[in-house]
């Protein structure tokens, strides 16, 4: 695909829950190789947007085009091999499994499942397993948690768990990675590291879509920011422009805060 062509394009996406409209006619296009931020007050529809993109929710209307294919009714698990991976706002790790196994699940679609070889204990199964583990360890190394790979996920700190989710998403070898509030609950140094990691990802050619409340982080890392309020897109553009957009300021001030005030 050409440079100008979007990797992900949302065309008129609407999602209603009963009488509540969570998303209304959202148009969005994400340029490959960029970091695209999505912000908005609580309840603006950000997480719903992610759920619609990953297929956990089906939109009432509109179309999602990812790398030239319409996603339509494709179920969530079949969107992963197309190059889509995500993290969750509230950590959803496999808590009673160790860190390495968590990351290995991220590779599910990229490794075969040699059933007979597993049952008979023959070479192919072990070889694939070793290869998968190498990739998993490489992903863990990227987030700096290789030393924790045998720990149970539940025993890690909050920030570390967020990073494991990050590694798990990386293991899915996505083209586009959706991060749902990755910095929430992280301390200052963890945030700095996260910032560095996201920029590295972009340099490596990944596309990142990021929901975040931490304005400082967003301003530093995003190429484009989309602002949602009450399920509608109210602004979009480069960070500096968005920050000074009157509607954005109104949306946040309406909640009694300042855009520059930082974390909500």
């Amino acid at each position: 695909m050409g440079q100008g062509e979007p990797i992900l394009e949302l065309k008129g996406i609407s999602k209603r829950f009963g009488g509540l409209t969570a998303l209304e006619g959202i148009n969005l296009s994400v340029t490959p190789g960029t970091v695209h931020g999505v912000i908005g007050p609580n309840g603006a529809g950000k997480s719903t947007l992610f759920n619609v993109i990953t297929g956990l929710l089906r939109p009432n209307s509109g179309e999602i085009v990812f790398r030239g294919n319409s996603l339509g009714r494709i179920p969530p698990h079949r969107r992963v091999p197309l190059g889509l991976a995500r993290t969750f706002q509230n950590i959803r790790l496999f808590k009673d499994m160790n860190v390495e196994d968590n990351v290995l699940i991220g590779q599910h679609v990229h490794t075969p499942t040699p059933v007979l070889s597993i049952i008979f204990g023959t070479q192919p199964a072990t070889e694939w397993e070793d290869k998968a583990k190498e990739v998993a360890d490489a992903c863990l190394r990227k987030v700096g948690l290789e030393s924790k790979k045998s720990e149970l996920a539940r025993n890690l700190s909050y920030g570390q768990q967020k990073l494991v989710e990050f590694a798990r998403a990386l293991a899915a070898q996505p083209e586009l990675i959706l991060l749902d509030e990755p910095a929430a609950g992280m301390n200052v140094s963890e945030k700095a590291e996260l910032l560095h990691m996201i920029s590295t990802l972009r340099d490596e050619g990944y596309t990142v879509v990021l929901i975040e409340h931490d304005m400082k982080l967003l301003m530093n890392v995003c190429d484009t920011i989309t602002v949602l309020n009450h399920g509608k897109k109210i602004a979009e553009g480069v960070p500096r422009m968005v920050r000074n957009h009157p509607d954005v300021i109104a949306a946040y001030l309406g909640k009694g805060g300042d855009v520059r005030a930082g974390t909500c």
Partner: peptide, 29 residues
């Protein structure tokens, strides 16, 4: 034991731990 220590067993456990997350990571649950 072979099944439980393989990719299959790991995927089973992921479904037990969090079915929705497993599905989001590409597991045909």
């Amino acid at each position: 034991v072979r099944i439980s220590r393989s990719k299959i067993g790991r995927t089973f456990m992921a479904i037990r731990e969090d079915e929705l997350a497993a599905e989001s990571m590409g597991v045909p649950t």
